[in-house]
Amino acid sequence: MEQKKYSIKEDFSMLALLIIPVGVAVNFVGGQLASILKLPMYLDTIGTIFAAMLCGPWVGAVAGGLTNIVTGIANPVNFAFIPVNVLAGLVTGFLARRKMFSVWWKWIISMLVMAAVSIISSAPIVVLVYGGVTGGGTSIITAAAMAAGANIWAAFFGTEGIFTVLDRIISFVICWLVIKVIPPRTLVKFGCGSNYIKESK
């Protein structure tokens, strides 16, 4: 099969432009829902992952960055985490282009990569800018571990690690369930959409 060419300009088609607000809003609603259901995860990058899976890394990055800008309007602390969400979009988008979401073992690799990138990119921000505490649910565990004498970095990685992986698994499964039910006729209009269409013989 011929390798598909991508261009940034084509990435930002009209449809992709409209998927960005959807992505941001889904991040927002996902986060809200997670806190209503009292889940110990943030689940606030579903929209970023979704936009990146469909429209590639650049659109994903914009959706990610814009999320933190917009939520930053209400709570400026979120500005500091712009890079984390941008990176999540970029990485997911590149994985999507490489068709890393096609079979189960690639899923596992992709999810671990996504979780790793998220932890590695947020760790320095949380530790250096906020001293290891963001006020979220897992902060308490981090704080307790720190009190017990654990190193601040180790405490962060240990507690955040498990939940971040879980977070990515749930987020990814949701995106996958949605993509599976989008009609192929619609999917082809998205930059990476055709990667999810089973080729009929």
């Binding site: 449809l15 409209l18 998927i19 959807v22 809003a25 889904v26 609603v29 996902g30 829902l33 997670a34 259901l37 009292k38 889940l39 689940l43 579903i46 929209g47 979704f50 749930i170 499964v173 949701i174 995106c175 369930l177 949605v178 039910v181 989008i182 619609t186 209009k189």
Partner: peptide, 21 residues
């Protein structure tokens, strides 16, 4: 509770995508 997350979010995203078209 985690299971409740899926049926709430999937139709929401799907509707938004179709609407965008």
């Amino acid at each position: 509770r985690a299971k409740a997350f899926f049926p709430s979010l999937v139709p929401l995203i799907l509707g938004a995508v179709i609407g965008s078209e």
